[in-house]
Simulated scan of single mutants.
Amino acid sequence: MSRTTDGTRDRERTRSAVLEAAERLLGERGTRVSVAEIAADAGVSKSGLLHHFPSKDELLLAVAEHGLETFKDEVMRHVDLAENRAGKVLRAYVRTLCGGSERAMAVFSPTAMWTGLTAVPGVEPVIAADATYWRETFARDGLPEDRSLVVRHAAEGLAAATSMQPYLDDRELAVARTALLALAEPTD
């Protein structure tokens, strides 16, 4: 168990370890993975896991929330504040998904994780809120909606395609990334 220097339990570290283990195992095995397997992978007892997440559904909901929040954070880390022009967030989105973050790219890879999570009670409104967040963020980003939609979803598709080698290799990803970044520039 994670402990701080004063001997008290570090709840946040334990929670993070459980979420990371759950995400990894869900990506490998889908929602068939057991709570006991997730606890063992995280290095905590099953009862310790259930202390943080009283049910498997609550754990899966937390995994979805954590994954979406982590992705937002990754994108915002790729925003170049020196870019004083429209499309700053869209370019960060492209950089994140097309080679800037392996973790973010994995979020868009076709795995059993997201397929299974969409059936968990409470996940649908979380995903809907995330979709609303991105729509509003890109609307404020200053580029025309049609271009923003095409670039955004092309970047997501490229991230998903990276797991489908040999269909997309590193050189092709770099070529596509450059093209999408050019499309994410204002034309005025």
Rank of each mutant, 00 (worst) to 15 (best):
L50R: 01
L50K: 01
H52V: 04
H52Y: 13
H52R: 04
H52I: 03
F53D: 00
P54L: 04
S55M: 00
S55H: 01
D57R: 07
E58T: 04
L59C: 01
L60F: 15
L61Q: 11
V63H: 11
V63M: 08
H66E: 10
G67V: 04
G67I: 01
L68P: 00
L68Y: 06
L68D: 03
L68Q: 07
T70F: 10
T70N: 11
F71M: 09
F71W: 06
K72G: 02
K72Y: 06
D73I: 10
E74W: 11
R77N: 12
A82E: 11
A82N: 11
G87M: 13
V89P: 03
V89E: 08
L90A: 03
L90Y: 02
L97M: 11
C98V: 11
G99E: 08
G99T: 07
G100C: 07
E102H: 10
A106M: 06
V107C: 14
V107P: 04
S109Q: 13
P110K: 09
M113E: 15
W114S: 10
W114G: 02
L117E: 11
V120G: 09
V120E: 14
G122L: 14
V123N: 15
A128H: 10
A128R: 13
A129K: 12
D130N: 14
D130E: 14
T132I: 09
Y133P: 00
Y133F: 15
R135Y: 12
F138K: 05
A139N: 08
A139P: 02
D141I: 00
D141V: 00
G142P: 02
P144I: 06
P144K: 07
E145A: 15
L149C: 12
L149P: 04
V151W: 03
V151G: 03
V151A: 09
R152V: 04
R152H: 07
L158W: 00
A161S: 08
A161C: 05
T162Y: 01
S163E: 08
M164V: 11
Q165S: 12
P166D: 04
P166H: 03
L168V: 02
D169R: 04
D169P: 01
E172D: 10
E172Y: 05
R177H: 12
T178P: 03
L181E: 15
L181N: 05
L183T: 11
